[in-house]
Amino acid sequence: MVRRILGLNAGRIAVGVLSVIILLAALGPVLAPHDPLETSPQTLAGPSWSHWLGTDYLGRDVFSRLLDGSRTSVLGALQVVLIALVVGVIPGILSVYLGRLFEWCTLRITDTLVALPFLVYAVAVTALLGNGIPQAMFVVGVLVSPLFYRVSRAATLAVARSQYVEAALIAGASVGLVVRRHVWGKVLPPITVALAYTIGTGFVVVSSLTFLGIGVQPPAPTWGGLLASALGYLAYQPWAPIAPAVMIMATVWGSNLLADAIRDVSGEAGRALLNSRRARAHRAGTVDNPEPLSVGGAAR
């Protein structure tokens, strides 16, 4: 799977961008040339060798703050994905098997969750339940879970009506065994696609919240907070929003690209793609076998 994704140009770019972001999140504080909280008398300075992206209104190094802020965003986005996965996929698969009452109830609950504007809810809940990114991301994860519910339910419905599953049931297999042996493998690819998209959504939500100053204590650096302070001093540093904005956009773009790449290489479309590739390689007389690179945790 990983090898097939890396065979696509889009997949390579996506994995590259996301690995860089994850590396930054893991090593950011080590790589940062300055203490992200340290103030200095040179406020709102332009880019220079000691301050690559200049300094902000308190004289803090923007580059170090950008590196340090990536951790909040990455952890927040991962939390959204994990919660959405647990809350969405399990009821999604079970809704096919646990009878009509459960099905009806979960369908109505998903209808409700889709209708709720999740940014408003995230703002409300964070403020009411305690100021912290984890609380906000928990709510966002629950509110985006309908995507996972629907995707896994649709995939399960398709498998559950197939003949080999009926044959397995007639042969005496339990529901648990059928889910583990047959359903899981079919449901996994569409869920991975939804997962990659959701990472992008998670990044946008984390940056939106931190932009509003929700969920973080003031001196701590975040991408959204950098944008907010850049907005306040736009007249002095009109280029200041570019760096954090590019980081956010690159991450979202990378995860969308990854989702497209996974969609292209999995399922029916993937088989067609693989066959056409093999045919082309055969015609060219070379065997196209890209070396699998070492990849970060996002590329699964």
Binding site: P241, A245, W253
Partner: peptide, 19 residues
């Protein structure tokens, strides 16, 4: 589609309102 609304907003403000 990958640009969050607040980034678009900041870009618009800096170009059309401030610039």
């Amino acid at each position: 589609s990958v640009t969050p609304p607040f980034v678009v907003g900041i870009v618009l403000v800096s170009i059309f309102a401030v610039g």
